[in-house]
């Protein structure tokens, strides 16, 4: 399963904001860190704002603040805002055509089902812990080398 650019942007934006719940995260800061178009990012942030996951503040020091529940909000909740994972478009007709197509459809559906279950099981809070683990793992060899 490959996520669209908007979905990936939404995920990293929420992670950035949820990691710093006490401060506003500037959109420009996220755009620069992930080397993405500020215009594209603004559209994604607006969608997150409409969903009640991020809140924007204008003016000096303005930016975005995470307003969701990190222990309840899952990766699947965010992905579903930007993608339709209910089925592969156009597959229904093709799957019905031959036994080979139906068999292939079953295997692909199995993969999708596992992916959906994985996304549903991981909350933003769990992702933040994973990010910390990655950070420590990356820092450990450097610390050992000093």
């Amino acid at each position: 399963m490959k996520l669209q650019k908007s979905t990936s942007l939404a995920l990293v934006s929420v992670l950035e904001a949820a990691a710093n719940p006490d401060r506003q995260v500037a959109a420009a800061e996220i755009a620069e860190k992930y080397d993405v178009s500020p215009h594209h990012l603004a559209k994604v942030l607006r969608e997150l704002g409409r969903a009640g996951i991020m809140e924007s503040a204008r003016g000096v020091g303005g930016g975005y603040r995470f307003t969701g529940n990190a222990r309840r909000l899952t990766l699947m909740d965010l992905i579903e805002l930007f993608e339709d994972l209910s089925g592969r478009a156009g597959d229904e007709e093709r799957i019905a055509a031959t036994a080979e197509d139906r068999a292939l459809g079953r295997v692909l559906a199995e993969i999708d089902e596992i992916a959906r279950a994985t996304f549903r099981s991981i909350t933003i809070d769990t992702m933040l812990k994973l990010v910390e683990r990655e950070r420590h793992a990356a820092a450990a060899p450097q610390a050992a080398a000093v």
Binding site: R71, T74, I114, R120
Partner: peptide, 18 residues
């Protein structure tokens, strides 16, 4: 079970991976 989101989320929150 894949559809047991509550328990899956709990074990994930404890750092368990696939």
């Amino acid at each position: 079970a894949r559809d047991n989101h509550l328990v899956l989320s709990f074990f994930r929150s404890q750092g368990m991976m696939a």
